[in-house]
Simulated assay, not measured.
Amino acid sequence: MTTSLVEQSNSKLWLAAIKPPMYTVAIIPIWVGTAVAYAETRNINGAIFSTFLMSAILIIAWLNCSNDVFDAETGIDKNKAHSLVNLTGNKPLIFALSNLFLAVGILGIVAIAWWQRDLTVIGLIFLCCALGYTYQGPPFRFGYQGLGEIICFVTFGPMAVAAAYYSQTQSWSINCFAASIVVGIATSIILFCSHFHQVEDDIAAGKRSPIVRLGTKRGSQVLWVFSVSVYALTGLFVLLGHFPIWTLFVFASLPVALKLCWHVHQHHDQPEKVSNSKFIAVGMHFWSGLLLSLGFVLTSG
């Protein structure tokens, strides 16, 4: 019985360390960019789409693993049982695996560029990776200065969505840019929510996250603004003609957003109760992105 409980506990720690739900952060920008391309061209290159999707997942794996390594170096994860470095006790191994994930992911992007005879997508993804590195990687560690949400918005919003769109069309689109803003905000909300339960550890490590700067109560109020903006901007872009009417399906994810905001509002200063808020935010990001994509796919062009 005791052995079984220990195994279950270890399994939960490994699942938390691997973060399966977080890989939707890689999937949604590719879906949205490709959906906009389909709405405008009525065509999708399946090989490019699937290759891009797998590459994005591998790049997120690199980001997650390398961030655990960089956080281990600053000591901010000393109380984080589900850190990959803490679970394995082997920082060089996790760092090597992270670099392997990155290399294979980049190979997929290189393949797309080769098929297209165009280096634009490589340039965009290289820049995304460079910005992703600056979030936690030395000597930058911009996440410790409270800039993580901005980096997250740019990389997983305008840059990633544009790269997915360009991989299908080899062109640019104002409609795609509008969609990328919505995706970028929804993605940044996930990172924003991840800070509420670790204020003490962040302060001890010198990390000036937005929640450290704002305080948990004001942070919970700002969360309402960010969340409402996802739906307000969708409605605005429909009115302006950048989004088809079908994208209003995104409002079906509003209950998840309200659940997130209310949960954080109630428990913003209770680390044990608010720690799951980032996973509710992942749900909001996934469903809003999926429904937004569906709206573009269903449009008649």
Rank of each mutant, 00 (worst) to 15 (best):
L223M: 11
A257C: 03
T247G: 02
L254E: 08
I125F: 13
Q8F: 06
T74I: 12
F251L: 12
M159P: 07
T74N: 01
M22Y: 13
W172S: 09
I27K: 02
V222D: 04
S50W: 15
A205E: 08
T234W: 00
V182D: 04
Q116C: 01
D77W: 08
S9N: 15
I57R: 03
V297D: 00
I44N: 11
G184N: 08
P210I: 12
A35W: 08
A35Q: 06
M1Y: 04
A179P: 11
T216R: 10
K278I: 11
Q221G: 09
G301Q: 11
D71C: 07
G219Q: 08
N64T: 10
T169L: 10
H242P: 00
A204P: 00
V85P: 10
Q266V: 12
G295N: 06
V250I: 15
L239M: 13
I94K: 03
L93K: 09
K217C: 04
H195F: 07
V110A: 13
K91R: 15
P139D: 12
C193P: 07
N43C: 07
Q145W: 14
D71S: 03
R42C: 08
G241E: 02
H285Q: 09
T24A: 10
L63E: 01
C129K: 03
L147A: 10
L294P: 09
I189E: 01
V104H: 06
F101N: 05
